[in-house]
Computed example of a mutant assay.
Amino acid sequence: MNSFDITASAGDAQSPALIADDSPLLWSALAAASNPRVCVIADNAGRELLPDLVLVDHLLTSGPAAEAVLYVKPSPYYVSDATTTDVLATVDRLRVAPGQEAGRIGRRLWQAMNGGTLMVRTHEFFCAPLPFHDMPADLRAELSGATMTISKGDLNYRRLVGDQLWDATTPFAERVRHFPSPVAALRTLKSDVVVGLDAPVVAGLDTTGEPWRTSGKYGLIQAYAGT
Rank of each mutant, 00 (worst) to 15 (best):
Ala173Lys: 10
Gly196Leu: 06
Glu48Tyr: 14
Pro180Lys: 03
Leu94Ile: 11
Gly219Trp: 00
Tyr77Asn: 05
Pro64Thr: 13
Thr149His: 05
Asp21Cys: 09
Ser23Val: 14
Thr149Lys: 06
Ala128Pro: 05
Glu101Gly: 12
Gly99Val: 11
Gln222Ala: 05
Thr227His: 12
Arg187Thr: 04
Ala42Gly: 03
Thr122Ile: 09
Leu88Gln: 13
Gly99Tyr: 04
Ala184Phe: 04
Val202Glu: 15
Met119Asn: 12
Ala168His: 04
Asn156Tyr: 02
Asn2Val: 08
Tyr77Ser: 06
Ala17Ser: 04
Thr208Pro: 01
Asp167Leu: 12
Val54Gln: 06
Arg47Pro: 04
Ala141Thr: 13
Thr169Glu: 14
Tyr71Thr: 11
Val69Asn: 10
Ser80Arg: 05
Tyr71Val: 05
Lys190Ala: 11
His123Val: 07
Val195Cys: 11
Ala146Arg: 15
Asn156Glu: 07
Leu118Ala: 03
Val201Met: 07
Leu109Gln: 15
Val56Tyr: 12
Pro51Ser: 05
Ala66Thr: 04
Gly116Gln: 12
Arg108Val: 05
Arg95Leu: 09
Ser215Met: 03
Leu50Arg: 02
Pro74Gln: 02
Ser15Gly: 07
Asp21Ile: 11
Asp5Leu: 00
Ala31Met: 15
Val87Asn: 09
Trp166Arg: 08
Thr90Pro: 10
Ile150Asn: 12
Thr214Gly: 11
Pro74Met: 08
Pro74His: 02
Ala173Gly: 04
Val38Lys: 04
Lys152Trp: 04
Leu59Asp: 03
Ser191Asn: 14
Arg121Asp: 15
Ala65Gln: 12
Val183Arg: 00
Tyr77Trp: 13
Thr7Glu: 12
Thr149Cys: 10
Ile221Phe: 13
Ala128Arg: 15
Leu59Cys: 15
Ala31Phe: 03
Leu26Lys: 05
Ala89Arg: 14
Pro74Asp: 06
Asn35Phe: 07
Glu101Cys: 05
Asp198Phe: 08
Leu189Ile: 07
Asp86His: 12
Arg108Ser: 14
Lys152Asp: 02
Ile221Leu: 08
Thr147Ile: 08
Trp212Ile: 02
Ala65Ser: 15
Leu30Glu: 02
Tyr78Val: 11
Pro182Leu: 07
Thr83His: 00
Leu220Val: 05
Ala45Asp: 05
Asp86Gly: 09
Thr214Glu: 13
Arg108Glu: 10
Lys73Ala: 10
Asp154Thr: 01
Asp192His: 01
Pro171Glu: 09
Val40Arg: 11
Cys127Gln: 00
Val96Ser: 09
Leu205Met: 11
Gln164Phe: 13
Gly63Cys: 06
Ala223His: 13
Leu109Phe: 03
Leu60Asp: 04
Asp154Val: 00
Ala112Met: 02
Asn114Leu: 12
Asp206Arg: 09
Gln111Gly: 07
Ser23Leu: 09
Ile19His: 00
Val194Ile: 12
